[in-house]
Amino acid sequence: MRASQALWRVAAAAVAGLALAGTAQAEQIVVSNYGVSANGMPFAVAMEKGFFKEEGANVTGILSSAGGGTTLRNMLAGDAPYAEVNPNAIIAAIKQGADVKIISDNVLTVAEFVWAVKPDSPIKSVKDLKGKKIGYTNPRSTSQGLATLVLQAGGFKTEDAELVKTGGFGEGVAALDTGLVDVAPIPEPLWSKFKDKYRPIARASELLPPIANVLGAAAGSATKEKADFIKAVIRARRKAVEFMKQNPDEAGDIVAKVYNLDPEVARSAVKNLVDSRTSGVEYWGPGQIHMEGLEKAVEVQKMIGALSGDIDLKSMIDTQFLPDDIKALK
């Protein structure tokens, strides 16, 4: 058995053991890059506005982590009943034997991404990317896969440009400043912070199709005991998304506190993403599973070697926790 498989199975067994032992109901949830990336903003709103309590979920804290695999391991080992994580992490974990299910489709597009250049750059569009240096965060990351799609949109192959690993989005901005890259991906809320300093040459919402961005996940062994809690978390997040649409400025002010952002930056980021439509699809969804976007996410991850082999997505999905009006696969 590979070490990664053993790790997942030990963690899953720990969850099962805790559930059987009748431990107290967990009150924390796990959200990848919470407090940093745009995906988790609705949870900040749900916490501040009391939506978790209104829906019957006593969420006392939201744990953050830097990556999908770490998020899932934190969920399993810590007996957290719910996690928000990228599709690659969930699918890879399930393939390795983890007792995890996809239970909601939270962020339906990659509309937070903008590819930008310095104002005086000769690059005007994706048609000008041949031979250029394009930043991405880390190997097999979403930003690497999207860089490939951006090149394809310009009529190029991956090898027609040089992809440069920067290690992070902030580091990518620094690399753009110093000339280590010609183009950098700048996602929200970083884009709202730096939009007056750089010039966009491509926006994911205009250039790319809907691609599943982050999903809700639950450990199968804990679902019977935690079902009501998980359902309440999904309802509360859905309520927060609706609140953000109706009150983007107030939502931005909430996000500013949690994410340690200037209020104007946070307001801009929230408004940009609330208003965003990618082929008619919104950024933050209510939880309903969009199969086309999920299949596209798998395609992108296979393209960069993060996933391989046959993947039966429907067998990985459990819609029992979704409200009745959004249970059907879309």
Rank of each mutant, 00 (worst) to 15 (best):
L261I: 06
K195L: 04
P209W: 06
E250C: 00
A212N: 08
A184S: 14
I186R: 08
A204T: 05
R238A: 15
R235T: 05
A240W: 01
G252I: 03
E159V: 12
V255P: 00
V241A: 00
R203C: 07
V258W: 03
E188W: 06
L180S: 13
G167A: 09
V181E: 13
N213D: 14
F194A: 11
K165W: 12
D253Q: 15
F169D: 03
S205N: 08
E206Q: 10
E206F: 11
D160H: 09
M244P: 00
A184Q: 14
P187R: 00
E242M: 09
L180I: 15
V173I: 15
K197G: 13
V241T: 01
L215Y: 03
A266I: 08
I230P: 15
K257R: 15
L261F: 09
V181N: 11
G252R: 01
E225T: 08
D182V: 07
V183N: 07
E264S: 10
A222C: 02
A174G: 07
S205D: 05
A219E: 13
P200C: 02
V183A: 06
P185E: 11
V164F: 07
G216M: 11
E250P: 06
A266L: 03
F169A: 02
A218R: 11
T158A: 12
D228S: 14
I254V: 05
T166Q: 07
K165P: 05
G167I: 09
P209Q: 07
